[in-house]
Write a protein that binds this DNA or RNA. Structure first.
Lengths: 232, 232
DNA sequence: TAAATAGTGTCTCTGAGACAATATGCA
DNA sequence: TGCATATTGTCTCAGAGACACTATTTA
């Protein structure tokens, strides 16, 4: 069938939802925001937060709304991750879900939000089987986040409004699961155009020279990119 | 509302479609497969091929099916591009569309397919305003294709089963709209792991040393990547 | 032979990674 | 002072781009 050649009477009805992969770095681990389901199916299982797209609401807008409801925070980076539309991914009816990826600084604590279901940050390494196909969605989100750190300034999204180069480096080390040379990392990120904007000075947690504090720059891409260990 | 906490009675119904951005390189131009709409709305306008997702069909499967119906070809590279869900993107009803990107070698001619609507290859530089939000979807698809050539072997998807390095280079030049040094390009692509598999020899169109023919290798990523002119 | 395209070799520059050296705080 | 961390500098190597040069075909 060619696009648009149809009438309202011949389309099968679907429900459309958004699911959110919200990631943060806390306690030295990459964590995802998960909710525990209070009802069947998958009662008691962890699941991604999300919900229905309203009749008069753009799909992207639904993701923004849900993210605000879940985290109490707005203005986070939010991007489409993919759409998951297997016929039986929800056992009760035909649901197509548009997944979004959000990166957040360590938020105080997930707000209970408009729902009774418990929400909490769970280290992605300790996440077991999730409800529906959410395990795969989460895996796709984590991989996307890892890839985006290479060529975008999004690593700074995991940090607070002001942060040190070492904090940013810890983000990279935790998300990628590698260790990076502090000297080379420092040279690269301070040299990258528009990534960091200097400010004043910082605390020295346990001793050692204080580190300069930076704010996020306005660069859209990271050049030169920070590459993970590749072919070599 | 949190994910999965709902009942079948409270979801608003949507129609779900797939739209295809099918790109090829022919006549020294990057071309998209478009159909001319035979009915309102947007009667007479060009639009992307696509159609409804069936009740018992996965969304990805619907894209594969539509691609086969439109091009008569299977086995092409096909990937999700994004989902477009503005409330009034279709004036008649609420339609959420999942867009896909396909890269094809120069196919003989678009088959008329199961539809009467005329389909043809249109150079993307000459595409005017499309129906619905298809102009934006096409633009997103073209940009995705350009970006993918950098770090994946997908440029070879635009070539036939056997091709020369010069043909592959023309693909890059046309898609990116730049000119590339033949010597450096040759050294790079023949040096990239798993990109090209040698075969026999080739014709020499008008004179000049014959070029070696290659088949696509099985590499999933292109390392080292071919980068477009960037920060330098 | 001339023209044309294919393919190789070389040089230089940039950036990555290893790691020495210096700077600046706290106990 | 001693220790810890921050920041700078230096060295080496790989790969990109410029481009000279060789190879192999047709006219």
């Amino acid at each position: 069938m060619l696009g648009g050649v149809y009438s309202p009477s011949d389309f099968p009805p679907f429900a459309v939802t958004v699911d959110l992969v919200v990631l943060t770095v806390r306690d030295e681990a990459l964590c995802a925001l998960l909710i525990r389901r209070g009802e069947a199916p998958f009662r008691g299982r962890w699941a991604l937060p999300g919900g229905f797209v309203q009749v008069d609401e753009a799909v992207d807008a639904a993701a923004v709304r849900e993210l605000g409801e879940e985290t109490g925070v707005s203005g986070l980076h939010l991007e489409q991750l993919g759409t998951y539309g297997e016929p039986r991914r929800d056992p009760r009816m035909r649901v197509v879900s548009v997944a979004y990826l959000a990166l957040a600084a360590d938020l105080p604590v997930p707000v209970a939000g408009t729902d009774a279901a418990a929400a909490s940050w769970v280290p992605v390494a300790e996440v077991g089987a999730l409800a529906f196909d959410h395990s795969r969605i989460l895996a796709d989100g984590v991989e996307r986040a890892r890839a985006k750190l290479e060529y975008t300034p999004l690593g700074a999204e995991f940090c607070g409004p002001e942060f040190t180069v070492a904090e940013l480096r810890r983000v990279y080390e935790i998300v990628w699961g590698v260790s990076l040379d502090p000297r080379n990392f420092h040279r690269k990120v301070t040299g990258a155009e528009g990534l960091l904007v200097p400010t004043g000075r910082s605390s020295s947690r346990d001793g050692g020279r204080p580190a300069a504090l930076y704010r996020r720059g306005d660069a859209g891409v990271l050049y030169p990119p920070l590459v993970r260990a590749s072919g070599s």
